[in-house]
Amino acid sequence: MLEINNLHASVVDIENSEILKGINLKVGRGEVHAIMGPNGSGKSTLANVLMGRPDYLVTDGDVTLEGESILELRPDQRAHLGMFLAFQYPAEIPGVRPWQFLKAALDSKAESRGEDKMSVRNFSKLFDEKVEAVGINPNLVKRSLNEGFSGGEKKRNEMLQLEVLQPALAILDETDSGLDVDALRIVAEGVNSMRSPERSFIVVTHYQRLLNYITPDVVHILVKGKIVKTGGPELALEVEKDGYQEYLEAAGANA
């Protein structure tokens, strides 16, 4: 489904700012991949570059979705193809209701595919169901998008969007950070319930604990902009036990 080949990326307008230094990754349909790494390894950058954040410049390599390169596409076009990024720090948008925002997002996707927009009535029903499923405080979704939300509430709101938009490829950028155990479980349950042979996940995380609840098919260790090791779920447990030190040292020796 998603293929990343020799991906290099830097920060726009800053020289010698390369963060991703040749990433190679293949995510098959229905697979859950975890990307783990220490702070500053480029995990979040990778997640954002995949979604097309304009702050980053791809200097080499390619990313294809279903065989087609997506690097020239705007973020909205990537979203229309079924990509989704759950943000580590979701932006606050004053005066915009989560309901209104999600309806607009769903409408634009339907429009791009030449499909009919969902009726307001059906959308309301879907929205209310998902609000309950994600366990988000119903009063919260009457407020402005993310404004005054706690860290955990923001993450739940991201999961709400994931549930409503039903993407083909969901990238979770440290969705577990700042969550207590209950919230963590809710996020994990959301992901697990959405797992299907048709949907792939890339779960970016610093800690292993989220992976106690979501069992990945493949785990990658990202250090200093490169994937240094790939393995099964057991790899996450090793990292939990031994930390990233040996990988950092190895990467340091290679640099």
């Binding site: 990537r78 606050e92 925002f101």
Partner: peptide
């Protein structure tokens, strides 16, 4: 950040600004 957030959900740049 606001623009990217909305665009990542499928809104065009113009729609995002408008919202």
């Amino acid at each position: 950040d606001q623009l990217f957030y909305l665009m990542a959900r499928g809104l065009s740049e113009e729609e995002a600004h408008h919202m």
